[in-house]
């Protein structure tokens, strides 16, 4: 299979605000193969959420706009599709799970009704069949005693259980791709572990691809096959999960891993603040905060991707032909 299931190319998403145009996603490319889990990781303001919402145009337009780029899903360019056709993808072949399960469920309908509706929106099946399917989905995501609970309202479920219901809804039409935006961030760790396990199992079972957005590197390490590290609207580094964690190459990725608390060593900090999203710096977006910055980092565009081994790439001049990575090699020795 040579064509990836999802291929995002040079995506630009902008937002008009009172303070100017925010280039939330500014030339981002990545692929998701069938059956694969790709993690978009970054801090707030990195554009990771906007990037994944741009795929099915869930961003509010206006003020948002997909200014340029291409999103190919199974060969079809989603950015050029009319809204009507897009809605068939949303919740159909592409499922969504959001951070806050509270907001994803309508408080005035029972979870069963919401699931039935989600199914019938895309499948022309009678109510009874849809309900049967809802039943088996809820059972699959680990809602005990579905018979009793299917007619409960969302508020009767705990946070973790609600997120399971949301997962069930996302799976309603057997999606090929599940987009999960910080699905476990609002949950307690022990519940997070349960939901992550569930997602992992579901993905294996169904062979679906998953695009997982998170700020938590621990979660990334837990589930990702490949990792896309974003900063200030740009991709900094991409690679296989082992490559990225064991040989982080981009100075931003390194810094991010260094400042994780509680690993029993001195805490490093990045220093400085995120650039102004309406007026990002020239050159490498990270250069005002980068400890390894050289003059070449300050002009032009974001540095091109350089191979740092296999499919592992970093957008940093130090890996370019002009440099021998001396600084970075040194940094790696610390």
């Amino acid at each position: 299979m040579s064509n990836p299931l999802l291929s995002v190319r040079d995506l630009h998403t902008t937002f008009d605000t009172d303070d100017g145009t925010v280039r939330a996603v500014d030339g981002v490319s990545f692929d998701v193969d069938a059956g694969e889990t790709v993690c978009l990781v970054g801090e707030s303001g990195s554009g990771k959420t906007v990037a994944c919402e741009s795929i099915t145009k869930l961003i509010p337009t206006p003020p948002g706009e997909i200014a340029a780029g291409e999103v190919r899903f199974d060969g079809e360019d989603l950015t050029s599709l009319p809204d009507k056709q897009l809605t068939e993808y949303r919740g159909g072949r592409i499922g969504h799970v959001f951070q806050n399960p509270q907001g994803a469920l309508d408080p005035v309908y029972t979870v069963g009704d919401q699931l039935v509706e989600a199914i019938r929106l895309h499948r022309d099946v009678p109510k009874s069949a849809a309900r049967e399917r809802a039943h088996s989905l809820l059972d699959r995501v680990g809602i005990g005693d579905v018979e009793d609970r299917i007619d409960d309202y969302p508020h009767q479920f705990s946070g973790g259980m609600k997120q399971r219901v949301v997962v069930a809804m996302a799976l309603a039409c057997d999606p090929d791709l599940l987009i999960a935006d910080e699905p476990t961030t609002a949950l307690d760790v022990t519940i997070q572990a349960q939901v992550l396990r569930l997602l992992d199992e579901l993905q294996d079972e169904r062979g679906m691809a998953m695009l997982f957005v998170t700020h938590d590197l621990g979660v990334v390490a837990e589930i990702a096959d490949r990792v896309v590290v974003m900063y200030a609207g740009k991709v900094m580094e991409t690679g296989d999960v082992y490559q990225v964690f064991e040989n982080p190459s981009h100075p931003y990725t390194k810094a991010l891993l260094e400042c994780l608390p509680g690993r029993g060593r001195a805490l490093e900090t990045i220093g400085g603040t995120l650039p102004d999203p309406t007026d990002p710096p020239d050159g490498c977006r990270f250069h005002p905060r980068c400890p390894h910055a050289v003059p070449a980092c300050e002009d032009g565009d974001q540095p091109a991707f350089e191979d740092v081994g296999g499919s592992h790439q970093a957008s940093c001049v130090l890996y370019g032909a002009d440099y021998d990575e001396p600084e970075l090699a040194e940094a790696n020795d610390d």
């Binding site: 259980m161 760790v189 992550l196 837990e222």
Partner: peptide, 21 residues
């Protein structure tokens, strides 16, 4: 054990607690 470690080699080692609080 539930804290996800930022180390892909230690994945799946979480002791899963059943049920809710």
């Amino acid at each position: 054990a539930s804290i996800p470690e930022p180390d892909p080699r230690s994945r799946g080692e979480a002791v899963e607690l059943t049920g809710d609080v």
